[in-house]
C-alpha cells in the first residue's frame, strides 16, 4: 500500500500548502511504514518537483500532459484513480483548497472510500482509524471513526508546519492515459490575481468591519498590510455593501482562514464572522465597544476607534522600520 498526495499545479509552481501536505503525508506514511507518493499533474519544472523530496516524499510522479492545463473534474479524477490503482494507494490526501475540495469527493466516490474533509492532524488512532476535525463551523471538535480500508481526506490549512528533513528526489515522469473525451470543460477566460498575496495563504491578515466607516478608510488597512507583509480581508457587511471585493470576505460563508495573526479593525465579531477566522494563531482587535464579542476570542485588544489607532500604528511601524 501507499499514501498518495495530490499536489496541485498553480501556473507551474506548487502553492504554499503543498509542502505542508507532503510533510503530513510523510508522517502518516511513517506510521504505516509505507511510501508517501506525490502526484503532480500538469507541466512543472524538475527542481520544483524534486524539492518535494525534502518534505518527505519518497517518490514524486509528474504527469506533464498538456490536456491537464485546465482542470476538468472528471478527467483529473480519472488520472488520480489510475495512479492510485497502480500504486495501491490506501490513503489519498488533498489540500483543503478549491481544487482539493472539488476532486477528493469524486475520487472517494469511485473508490467507495470514506471521505473526511478538513482533518486537523494526524489520526488519533489507526486501528480503529480515527481522525479529528472541526464541525459547526469551528464551534465543536469531533473525532470521526473511518470504517473503510481506503480513505480520502482533505487537510485543513495550517494543520502543521512544513519541515524539510529529507533529500530531494528524482521526479518520475508518468504518461497515464488521459481520456480527452471525458473532458467537457472549455476555458474561455482566465483572470489571475497576479502579484497579490492571497488571503488564504497570508501569514498576516489585516481586516476591517463596518467600524471602518467608509470604503476610503480601507487605504489605512492596505497600508498597514503592506508594512507588515500581510493581506487584507473584511466582514460580510463590508463586502455586501461593495466597500471591498467579495473575495476578501472572511467568515463562515466567505473564506475560512487561519493566519498567524488576524488583526481586526472595527469588527464586532458576529458568530458567523468568527467561524471563518477563529483558527488563527493570534487574534488582535481594535473596537470602540468593550463588550464586542471579538474581545472574547481575541488575544490582544484595544478599546478605541480604528480610525484613530491605525494612523498611529502605521507611524510607529514606519519609525521602527526607518521607512
Amino acid at each position: 500500500m501507499s499514501i498518495l498526495i495530490f499536489a496541485e499545479n498553480r501556473n507551474g509552481k506548487f502553492p504554499r500548502h503543498v509542502p505542508e501536505l507532503v510533510t503530513y503525508g510523510r508522517q502518516l506514511a511513517d506510521q504505516f511504514r509505507v511510501q508517501a507518493i506525490v502526484l503532480a499533474p500538469g507541466r512543472m519544472d524538475h527542481p520544483e518537483l524534486a524539492a518535494l523530496g525534502k518534505y518527505g516524499a519518497h517518490r514524486v510522479l509528474s504527469v506533464p500532459d498538456q490536456s491537464l492545463d485546465v482542470m476538468d473534474n472528471r478527467m483529473y479524477s480519472d488520472v488520480i484513480l489510475e495512479i492510485a490503482g497502480e500504486e495501491d494507494a490506501e490513503i489519498l490526501l488533498f489540500a483543503y483548497s478549491n481544487a482539493g475540495k472539488a476532486l477528493a469527493p469524486l475520487v472517494a466516490a469511485h473508490l467507495q472510500a470514506a471521505y473526511v474533509s478538513a482533518i486537523t492532524g494526524l489520526p488519533a488512532g489507526t486501528d480503529p482509524f480515527v481522525v479529528r476535525k472541526k464541525v459547526f463551523s469551528g464551534k465543536v471538535f469531533t473525532d470521526i471513526f473511518v470504517k473503510t480500508r481506503k480513505k480520502v481526506f482533505t487537510l485543513a490549512p495550517h494543520s502543521l508546519e512544513a519541515s524539510e528533513h529529507y533529500d530531494p528526489v528524482t521526479p518520475e515522469i508518468r504518461h497515464v492515459k488521459v481520456h480527452e473525451n471525458r473532458n467537457v470543460t472549455e476555458r474561455m477566460e482566465i483572470k489571475s490575481q497576479e502579484g497579490k498575496l492571497l488571503l488564504t495563504e497570508a501569514d498576516i491578515v489585516i481586516s476591517g468591519g463596518r467600524g471602518m466607516q467608509h470604503p476610503d478608510n480601507f487605504k489605512l488597512l492596505e497600508e498597514l498590510a503592506a508594512l507588515l507583509g500581510g493581506a487584507t480581508a473584511c466582514t460580510r457587511p463590508v463586502s455586501d455593501e461593495g466597500w471591498r471585493p467579495a473575495e476578501e470576505h472572511a467568515g463562515q460563508t466567505g473564506k475560512i482562514i487561519a493566519p498567524d495573526l488576524y488583526f481586526a479593525f472595527g469588527i464586532s465579531g458576529a458568530i458567523q464572522h468568527l467561524a471563518g477566522v477563529s483558527s488563527s494563531k493570534v487574534i488582535a482587535a481594535v473596537n470602540t465597544d468593550p463588550e464586542a464579542p471579538i474581545f472574547e476570542v481575541a488575544d490582544y485588544g484595544i478599546v478605541g476607534d480604528a480610525l484613530d489607532i491605525l494612523p498611529k500604528m502605521i507611524e510607529e511601524i514606519k519609525r521602527r522600520k526607518h521607512v
Binding site: K101, P105, L106, S117, S137, T154, Q252
Partner: peptide, 14 residues
C-alpha cells in the same frame, strides 16, 4: 454549516 463535510455534491457527481 453543521458538519462542514464539503462532500455531498462531489460524491453525487462521482
Amino acid at each position: 454549516s453543521d458538519y462542514n463535510g464539503a462532500a455531498v455534491g462531489g460524491l453525487v457527481a462521482g
